[in-house]
Design a protein around this nucleic acid. Sequence first.
DNA 1: ATGGCGCAATGGTTGCGA
Length: 254
Amino acid sequence: MKIATWNVNSLKVRLPHLLQWLAANPIDVLCIQETKLTDDKFPVAAINEAGYEVVFSGQKTYNGVAILSRLPIADVVRNNPHYQDEQQRLIAATIGGVRFICAYVPNGQAVGSDKYAYKMGWLAALRTWVGAELEIHEQFAILGDYNIAPEDRDVHDPELWAGQIHCSDLEREQLRELCGLGLVDAFRLFEQPEKQYSWWDYRQMAFRRNRGLRIDHILLSQALAKRCEACVIDREPRKWEQPSDHTPVIATLL
DNA sequence: ATGGCGCAATGGTTGCGA
């Protein structure tokens, strides 16, 4: 079973990329973020034709998440039951005996801003929900755009980014505490090449210069981590015409 | 230090992302 996460930065623009990528990669469950579509505009038919069921929770202009699956999708929950939020950033479902959460963590904009405070409160509430889910589901995975680079090795220029948004101590602490519930970063279960990132700024040829951040993650429960055989970042779609600024992360499970 | 780029809503320009 292959599972993946990808922030598509507008599904309207990126639907061809998504379909092309799925045609070339045998993904069973894909969590996507930043669909930026209201539910009435979601391209269900095109995704069904590609062989996937899909559930989604969207809104106009910003945010929006979805889970695509080759296997039947059950027990769908939209948003965090422990947190009142007008922004559509979370959707959960059970697929193939695994409980999945697809997450689009708030960006936070700048340390100390209102949006940063929202990010912190949102992450604290997420932890409450994930803790409750882990009580129920031994096989659990939360995939998404966390907007947090866990460590300096996940940052192209740690000095430039020191203390900045995505890299601040409080954000990293939030991620550590989330993992403290009993989750592991699938990417770090394996030896990886250096300078592996999942996002690069559109500007200043950041991708070509590999000036990126690793902010998209697949976190697995202990039981699911035992089934994990590989985790890779697929840079290919970032090379295509009109790419998303993020690229997919894939985990292979036994 | 700032802006660069891209997307959305818009109908010129702004908000936001990361």
